[in-house]
């Protein structure tokens, strides 16, 4: 409760300073809009449905791209962690590829797929695939060996061993990497949308720039922050907490 009060005070102070600076007119309003201007832009954006459409389009891409990277990343991570040869070769490549910002995939994606939905999804996929793969690999390594042995002992093998033992056993180690993968995917998507002219929040942001509408730019930025925080803070953190409680692990 105290924490919440402190946070409320902090944000009120931040808004007040912003409002005062805007009132002082040190910078012109089209470069430094007041909070109410941004509030207006938010209202208008939702009222004319452009923000709703932007959110829908962006979230749809996120879900498709991220789901693909989770499935692919798990398969890749599992393959890499189960063979020494793959670990030394593919594993090393994956780690080095992680130093490549996902926006670097855009030129390649455009040349391969053109300015299409496919290209955007490809960039999202590449943004989070590596995190998920590495998380899966780590998860399997960190997972206590006893579970795999107990599973085999009780008659599990092959896909069933993976699905009913290895996967759940590595889940607490995996969820952190999944969260990181989501964050990477989110960044990649917004970046890609800013370059492609194809609806979405990133494009709304660029549209604000093109119209020299600073209020819209800031409104969309706030929207991106809030959406990103909601998914990370509400969905992933709740998942993490639930998992820890169920597995009897102390919260990290």
């Amino acid at each position: 409760m105290k924490k919440l009060a402190r946070q409320v005070v902090f944000y009120c102070a931040l808004l007040s300073i912003w409002a005062i600076l805007a009132k002082l007119r040190i910078w012109p309003p089209y470069l430094f809009p007041p909070p109410w201007g941004v509030g207006h832009a938010l209202w208008d954006g939702f009222a004319d449905h452009s923000f709703w459409i932007g959110i829908m389009v962006t979230m749809k891409r996120m879900l498709i791209g991220y789901s693909m990277s989770v499935v692919l990343g798990m398969i890749l991570g599992l393959a890499v962690s189960s063979s020494k040869f793959l670990e030394e070769t593919v594993g090393g490549l994956l780690v080095s590829l992680q130093s490549l910002p996902s926006i670097c995939w855009i030129p390649l994606a455009v040349l391969w797929f053109g300015l299409t939905e496919k290209a955007i999804l490809f960039v999202v996929l590449m943004g989070s695939l590596l995190s998920v793969t590495i998380a899966m690999e780590d998860g399997r390594k960190q997972m206590p060996k006893i579970y795999a042995m107990a599973g085999r002992n009780l008659g599990a093998s092959g896909f069933r061993l993976f699905w009913s033992v290895l996967l759940p056993a590595s889940l607490p180690f995996l969820v952190n990497g999944m969260k990181q993968g989501w964050a990477f995917a989110w960044r990649s998507l917004i970046q890609a949308e800013m370059i492609f002219l194809s609806l979405g929040l990133g494009q709304l942001l660029m549209m604000g720039r093109d119209l020299s509408d600073m209020s819209q730019v800031m409104a969309v930025m706030i929207l991106i922050v809030i959406l990103g925080y909601l998914v990370d803070g509400l969905i992933f953190r709740t998942m993490e907490r639930r998992l820890q409680a169920k597995y009897g692990l102390t919260p990290a």
């Binding site: 006893i146 579970y147 107990a150 002992n153 009780l154 599990a156 009913s164 759940p168 056993a169 597995y247």
Partner: peptide
């Protein structure tokens, strides 16, 4: 499954309930 080992560390599955653990081998 004609020979089942009870490990020193047990190796019970924390993601399953007690009943789920007992049921595991039967599912397999």
């Amino acid at each position: 499954t004609d020979r089942i080992l009870i490990f020193q560390e047990l190796g019970l599955f924390p993601w399953l309930t007690v009943a789920g653990n007992v049921e595991f081998g039967l599912k397999m």
